[in-house]
Design a protein around this nucleic acid. Structure first.
Length: 297
DNA sequence: TCCCAGGTCCTGA
DNA sequence: TCAGGACATGGG
């Protein structure tokens, strides 16, 4: 891997196990969008970044050299995904899922943003989740810049969501999650030191703390732990993961909690990675969906 | 019109 | 403990 720091962009050559589409469309993040030229533009903290890829060369546009360490952390560049994939590749199902989503990386996202984003994900579709987050950012975030003709806003601070009215949050199409978002924001303001310390505590402690928030259950808590707190031994079970697990690994009527336990035993401290390959594979392939429903995504 | 979505909460047994 | 229904919203 060779890194070239330029004035307003960073180029990385020979970057292994990195694929823009797989990273940004595997369901872990909601603020990245594909441009017409195939590049992706997204918001990280208060920066608008654009990525383009040609083979093993990735160009990070609109970014200063001093932000390289942030990129390295966010995109998990120090992690050896080749090694992870080898360790996970123990049966034909995983082999296929890994092959399919080969360039996935688990992003290291902000805890607060991830909490709210996955609260919004409850009983919702990915395009709608993205829309609600976009609405919240436009309404309550701060203007960052105009990039390629589009205005970008930062993810709203907890202060702004705590002081917003439920009606205002409802206008962002958050639906029944609106009061939960406001409540979580108020509580986060008091306890952010606890939240930002979860990555240093045990998985079980993190899980039970997060579940004390209204609107965060087992699945959402697992996603927060995995996508923003570096807890990789968790295996979030949603409709898609349930389908593929019931189709390929466990009995049809196995409950989510048991599926999760089975998987965490099987995949150990790589459960989170395994889950992400399986989720992406199941969702893109429509695994377990009845033929009559297959057109709906 | 009905069903579903990266679920969670509440209720009643 | 556990099943069953409610919950906003929008797309198919």
């Amino acid at each position: 891997m060779e890194v070239i720091l330029e004035d307003n962009r960073i180029i990385i050559n020979n970057l292994e196990d990195f694929n823009l589409r797989h990273i940004f469309e595997c369901g872990q993040c909601f603020r990245w969008n594909r441009e017409e030229d195939g590049s992706y533009t997204g918001v990280v903290e208060n920066k608008v970044i654009n990525l383009e890829q040609a083979g093993k060369t990735v160009i990070f546009n609109n970014i200063k050299p001093e932000d390289y360490s942030m990129l390295k952390s966010y995109f998990d560049l120090d992690n050896d995904y080749g090694k992870i994939k080898n360790l996970l590749n123990t049966d034909s199902i995983m082999a296929e899922a890994i092959e399919f989503g080969h360039g996935i990386r688990i992003l290291n996202q902000d805890e607060w943003e991830t909490m709210i984003s996955f609260m919004i994900s409850a009983n919702n579709r990915i395009p709608m989740i993205k829309k609600v987050i976009e609405n919240l950012s436009t309404s309550f975030g701060e203007f960052i810049c105009n990039y390629k003709g589009k205005d970008y806003y930062s993810f709203p601070k907890a202060e702004r969501l705590a002081e917003a009215s439920v009606e205002e949050i409802l206008q962002c199409k958050a639906g029944f999650r609106a009061p939960r978002i406001k409540e979580a924001a108020a509580r986060f303001l008091e306890e952010k030191h606890l939240v930002y310390n979860i990555k240093n505590r045990s998985y079980d402690e993190g899980l039970s703390y997060l579940k004390t928030y209204k609107g965060i259950g087992d699945k959402v808590a697992s996603c927060i732990l995995l996508f923003s707190m570096k807890h990789f031994s968790t295996f979030p079970v949603d409709v898609w993961v349930r389908r593929i697990m019931q189709e390929l690994y466990v009995d049809k009527n196995t409950k989510d909690a048991s599926i999760r336990q089975f998987a965490e035993n099987k995949f150990g401290n790589l459960s989170g990675y395994a889950q992400q390959y399986l989720f992406y594979y199941a969702r893109e392939k429509g695994i377990g969906v009845k033929k009559s429903e297959k057109l709906t995504t």
